[in-house]
Amino acid sequence: MVASAAVVPVPSVAAVPSVVDVIKVSDVTKRYLLGSVVVEALRGVSMTVAEGQFLTITGPSGSGKSTLMHLLGCLDIPTTGEILISGERVDQMGEIELASLRNRRIGFIFQQFNLLASVDAVANVELGLIYARVPRAERRARSIELLERIGLGNHLRHRPMELSGGQQQRVAIARALVGNPDLILADEPTGNLDSASAQEILTIFDELHATGRTVVVITHDPEVAARGSHTLTLRDGRILAGVA
């Protein structure tokens, strides 16, 4: 299963000349100021993620993983270089365009879950759809359907505090999927979970991959990194090893 997913499925519509990579990063650098010190977080990174790939990005802390994740998630723009997400140039985009792109193309999963404590599971899942101006009835229907599929059908009205860590992360996964994004981007998704819950979540990632989703997971955990169809290792802001 893992091997077959590495081969990018060629669309049956022959008129399409080439497959658009979900992510195409060309010679990207990122410098930022930390106090008065210039930090070179990325020193020339090029990579592509094809549709359907399950890419894990690993590396020690300070290697530039987080910076790369921010750039792939369109939360930030590079100092130099080009980034295309589903064919859209994002490295020159302004804040408003980036917000729209994140909303349409990217589903985020965080280590801290980042659920809103004040509202229930359904309201947490539908959050991104509000900004996509999806009508309320449709938002709720889609959110409930996803929560049921992910095994939380009995917890729709529960607030995050009433859920276990694993359940909270599943709510977060539902939230990432509800907008039907091109890319699922996860940052240490199992970092805050016990091993049983972590296995549950990783199984869900496997299933996502199996259904053709493009998944990028940032992790320092070798076991998690090994789950990917592809792996990249970063060190000192450069890609050290891996195929992508």
């Binding site: 801290q112 959050l127 991104g128 900004y131 939230r175």
Partner: peptide, 16 residues
Amino acid sequence: TREIGLRKALGARPRD
């Protein structure tokens, strides 16, 4: 702050 960050990550514009 985290809520604001999350909303922005999910596509909220500054004006939202």
